[in-house]
Every structure is written in C-alpha cells, then in structure tokens.
C-alpha cells in the first residue's frame, strides 16, 4: 500500500493511502504533476503541502474519504438535479456535530478547494437542508448573519414576499 503524506497549514503530517486521494481532484493533479505514481519516485519522501487546509479540518476530510472509498464520482454539470440528492445517514451524522459551526463551513470550503465533488455536494446539501422551513430572521440567527436591513427595508421586502406567495 502506497502512502502519501499530506501536510496541513499548521504543519501536521497525515500519511494517507494513495487510493483514497483519487477522490480529490486537486491532490490527484498534484500527484500526477509530482510524478508520485512513478515507481522510481519515493513518494514517502515527497509530502504534499496543503497550505489552505488546517489539520483538524484535514483530519475530517480524510475520515470522510475513508468512509467513501471507491464511491463513484458523478461527472459533469449536475446543477439541475441537486434537488434529488439525499444526504445519507452516515454523512448526516458526520456533519451534524459541526452543523451551524465554523467546522462545517471550513469542511465545505476545504471540499471545494480540494475538489472533492461528492463531499462538496453533500456538505452543501446538508447546509441547505437547515434552511428549509425557516424564515429569513431564523436563518440569520442560526447561521450568525447580522441583520443589515432597516425596518423600512424589511417592511418593503415583507410586502414583496406577500406578493410572491
């Protein structure tokens, strides 16, 4: 089993099974560019720095990739059928402790940076699920969004929504 070392922004080393990293478009590209797959390259001696991902987040990402090892990755533009995606129970439990917290947001940003399509899709879906059935002020409160509307603006928008309902 070939191990490849990932180095987080806070310089923690994570030795990861080569196979797992196929899920990350960004790392896959780096592996190819660094010729880490060549037999005469000593992959163990060439760690991959990920200056945009912190150790605790990277740990979660690797945990997620381990669980999803071998999952098929949907290709192409699937923006039209995201509505049908269901977050599996395992992933829901995985996201839940961090939900509404910065960890989950960081995980989402890392999934986007590392180009791990399935993680990004599910993570976004889990966030959007928290919006369902909520009002604007409720979303604000739950997700720490400051209220920037003046009472007049709020009133105007409220009226507009009455129209569109």
């Amino acid at each position: 089993m070939v191990l490849i070392t990932l180095v987080s922004s806070d310089e923690q080393n994570f030795p990861v099974e080569r196979e797992l990293l196929k899920q990350s478009g960004t790392i896959e590209t780096l592996i190819v560019n660094m010729n880490l797959d060549d037999e005469d390259t000593d992959a163990a001696a060439m760690p991959i720095p990920l200056p945009n991902v912190k150790g605790d987040v990277l740990e979660k990402v690797i945990q997620w990739m381990e669980h999803h090892k071998g999952d098929p990755v949907k290709e192409g533009d699937n923006e039209d059928n995201n509505a049908e995606i269901v977050v599996p129970q395992w992933d829901d439990d995985f996201f839940k402790p961090a939900m509404y917290g910065s960890k989950h947001l960081e995980l989402t940003v890392a999934a986007s940076y590392l180009d791990i399509k399935n993680l990004l899709t599910l993570s976004c879906k889990a966030i959007s699920n928290t919006f369902k059935g909520k009002t604007g002020p409720q979303i604000r409160e739950e997700w720490g969004v400051p209220n920037e509307f003046t009472p007049e603006e709020e009133e105007a928008i409220r009226k507009e929504n009455e129209w569109s309902e």
Binding site: E79, K125, S128, F131, T135, G136, R140, V145, F149, E165
Partner: peptide, 22 residues
Amino acid sequence: LLLMIFDNLSMEERTPLGTTCK
C-alpha cells in the same frame, strides 16, 4: 459555495433568502 447551497432549494424554499441579508 453559497450559490451551490441555494441551488439545492426549491423556488418556495428560496423565498426567505431574500429577507436574510443583502
């Protein structure tokens, strides 16, 4: 990423987005 998140919602579910923030 916000666009990806919003895109998972139906038209009706998107209504409160207009009153969350600018």
